[in-house]
């Protein structure tokens, strides 16, 4: 009955507010307490994206941000080219003769994930 009342008047009980706050705070607690999990997620994210585009691995940012009623994963992934990196291209292991990628100052197009409500 209280539920119905609140839905009609668009109000939320304080216990519902408490529950919602608790859910969010624990989500972010768990994220901050499991950095290795976030690292793993980041690595796998790169792996998947690299099948489609060439991303700048050094500049990827993955953050979790709290919005009003959700925790969203914000991934900022600079894309170097719209072609997947060639697998056979050896990544220069510190050799001086490795072809240097031209540094572009121009802002790169970025893929930003939509804030998806975390459940």
């Amino acid at each position: 009955m209280i539920d119905l009342f609140n839905r009609l008047f668009g109000k939320q009980t304080s216990s519902a507010t408490a529950k919602e706050r608790l859910r969010l705070v624990l989500l972010s607690d768990h994220l901050s307490l499991a950095p290795e999990l976030v690292d793993k997620l980041k690595a796998e994210l790169i792996e998947v994206l690299s099948r489609y585009v060439e991303v700048d691995r050094t500049k990827i940012e993955v953050n979790f941000e709290q919005h009003d009623s959700a925790i969203a994963m914000m991934a900022n992934v600079p894309i170097l080219s719209m072609h997947p990196p060639k697998v056979e291209t050896p990544t220069h292991p510190g050799g001086g003769d490795a072809p240097k990628r031209p540094r572009r100052r121009r802002k790169r197009p970025t893929a930003t994930s939509n804030p998806a409500p975390a459940s």
């Binding site: 209280i2 609140n6 009980t13 304080s14 216990s15 519902a16 408490a18 529950k19 608790l22 859910r23 624990l26």
Partner: peptide, 16 residues
């Protein structure tokens, strides 16, 4: 208080 929606219920707490 739980009934009035002013306190987390046992189920609320343990669903978390």
């Amino acid at each position: 208080l739980v009934q009035k929606g002013k306190m987390l219920s046992v189920e609320d707490v343990n669903s978390i």
